[in-house]
Design a protein around this nucleic acid. Structure first.
Lengths: 366, 366
DNA sequence: CAGGATAAGCAAACGCTGTTGCGTTACGTC
DNA sequence: GACGTAACGCAACAGCGTTTGCTTATCCTG
């Protein structure tokens, strides 16, 4: 495999433009050649070529014309949602939640399975594969692959579940490889909060350029999208905001430290102090705003729904209070629209992003 | 200015490759055509063309040959440090520190000026311009521009000092514009901790892909480089780690919140508890590791030098203790080699990076 | 109901990128 | 001095977006 150079730099130019046009088209409304040219900063003529390529691949189709004054009517183009599909799986210790989505990230079918107990690895892979196979038969369009989102330290690059310190039967398992082999499909493995954010950015292209997604499931996570790029970090462990200390010397946490956000949040809930729990969340969010200057915060996860009105209120209040001296800063706080499908959909969108998302860099390594 | 498209996508390909070759060359040792081809994943022939372009611009020169067995000897190339220069200024409330650096970021000349008091804006601009002009005459090479690093909220995009909540004569000043006008040179304005990190990444190309720089001057800041990109955020306010809460309900901070890292750090120092201060720093660092998974931490800033042995020890201890369950994670903690020139050099490197650094994205807006 | 103005889109030629194929150069070895 | 080897240069090439000029389709005017 030495010296393999699968794509030339010119392919990368075309590929990046293809992805960019797809991102514009994904916003929903049909677009004109001129719209795209404006958005990509290229000539209308170039857009014709790009759209031609995408139409050849069946990703885009013409969508009628509109007349707007004199001159030839504008041709409109739209994305073809049914041209591609991806499977998304959300794995927790007691449940497997699966979806198939189309090219725009809309759900075609949903499945939920209670496993009840922690399955050993071979059984786990079999369960995941069975779920995926059930979902694979739904809907038209080319099936691109499957994404899997799960909590805990997960290595996206290697596709390995690293696991926590406590005894853990899944620790160190190369889940991506095993499942890909079993399914005969490309598989991507990612941390649940990052998968969720990938899903949100896929659905709202261009909007969430500097966004934090705070996920409250069994644990507490927060993933970041900065300048349009999902942050994964050096060992692809980014997102463990739950193990960020917000009260030095506070509640002991399972990780061995004291005053982790996750421990404080859980302790507050156990005390029945939902207000304090919301304040912990607000602190985490405000810390993110100060540290990396996000202007959008998305809340999601099973646990957060029970308290979401209070949580959002607390976060908004903390933000306006702390930012009153900086009126030019506005931070939008919103609840994910995906509900409990958030992570499964996100995992599916990992595949879509991998295939049709904007490439990160132009030049190769370095 | 509507519809201006100064660079075509092909220019951007060439530009990105030029920058990448320059980054490789900046590492110091002369490089061969084959080395570069390997690093950039392009053909040796393409490297010849790229090097040709760079040699035409005087940025690179041949540096002899080496024989390694039979065949034609390998031609070596090296960067020409003296071909370009940039000015860097570090502004604080009581001091202006300035440098001129060459293309590799090495200092050609250094100046230090105590202003003693907070100058009104016109006087400030005059002082900065005078310093810059003194530095501008030193050394050969084309002068590219000047960079200015300063504490507090700074808008890199607009070139405006936003200022804090307290009465501040500089608040809202478009410093970049004013200084550029006065000097007749391009000027870049950035937050001190981000400027410092730009400097570090310029000096160590490729090494600091996921790095946090913790800067302890009058305040406390931490800037991030993730996947090789400096994080500036939605309003380019990223880096205010000092106003990140590490002890909810703790020491009141000037920003109105309680338990900000900066307030806790200062309170510990005021109590003469250097150990606790170091622990606050360690907490900030560990939070960064958990949140964005950096694998390198650079310490810098005037204040940190007084306690750097203890600080680094505390940080290293906290890291090994917290990460013992995850042996695959290694976080390198180091002290900046730039000493008190850190920010001034960084500000100069902002200009170098702007001109010859790797571009962020291939396609235009979106 | 023609004719002109206007706007969108197509086709071909162009400039530029990196790539490919092949010949040249300079070295060590026999 | 002939030969093999490795680095390199030249020329032709493919593919990207750009430019230019023409065609098409609509509205507006007389």
């Amino acid at each position: 495999m030495t010296g393999v150079r699968p794509t030339s730099p010119l392919d990368r130019v075309a590929g990046a433009h293809d992805a960019a046009v797809l991102a514009v088209a994904r916003r929903g409304d049909p677009v004109s050649r001129a719209d795209v040219a404006q958005a990509l900063q290229v000539t209308p003529q170039a857009v014709s070529k790009i759209l031609g390529r995408l139409m050849d691949r069946g990703l885009v189709a013409e969508a009628g014309t509109i007349v707007s004054g004199p001159g030839k009517p504008t041709t409109l183009y739209r994305i073809v949602p049914s041209s591609r599909r991806a499977i998304g799986l959300h794995l927790t210790r007691s449940r497997v939640h699966g979806v198939v989505v189309d090219l725009t990230g809309e759900i075609l079918e949903r499945r939920e399975l209670e496993t009840g107990h922690l399955q050993p690895v071979p059984e786990l892979i079999a369960t995941l594969a069975a779920e995926a196979r059930e979902l694979a038969v739904v809907g038209p369009g080319e099936l691109l692959g499957a994404g899997l989102g799960m909590p805990g330290p997960v290595d996206w690059t290697e596709g390995v579940y690293r696991g926590s310190s406590e005894p853990d039967p899944w620790r160190g398992t190369p889940i991506r490889h095993l499942l890909a082999e079993e399914l005969g499909l490309p598989v991507l493995l990612d941390h649940d909060s990052r998968a969720a954010l990938v899903g949100e950015t896929w659905s709202e292209p261009g909007l969430l350029r500097n966004t934090a997604l705070v996920l409250v499931e069994d644990g507490l996570g927060a993933s970041l999208c900065l300048d349009g790029v999902i942050v994964r970090g050096a060992h692809s462990h980014a997102g463990e905001a739950g193990h960020t200390v917000v009260r030095m010397g506070g509640t002991p946490c399972s990780c061995g430290r004291f005053g982790c956000a996750q421990a404080e949040y859980q302790a507050a809930l156990d005390d029945g102090d939902a207000e304090l729990a919301a304040q912990v969340l607000a602190t985490v969010v405000l810390n993110l705003v100060r540290l990396v200057d996000v202007d959008r915060v998305v809340l999601g996860g099973r646990t957060v729904y029970a308290h979401h009105a209070r949580s959002m209120e607390a976060i908004r209040r903390a933000l306006t209070q702390s930012l009153q001296a900086e009126p030019w800063i506005h931070v939008e706080v919103m609840l994910s629209t995906r509900g409990t499908d958030l992570i499964a959909v996100g995992a599916a969108c990992e595949v879509l992003t991998h295939e049709y998302g904007l490439p990160q860099a132009l030049v190769g390594p370095e």
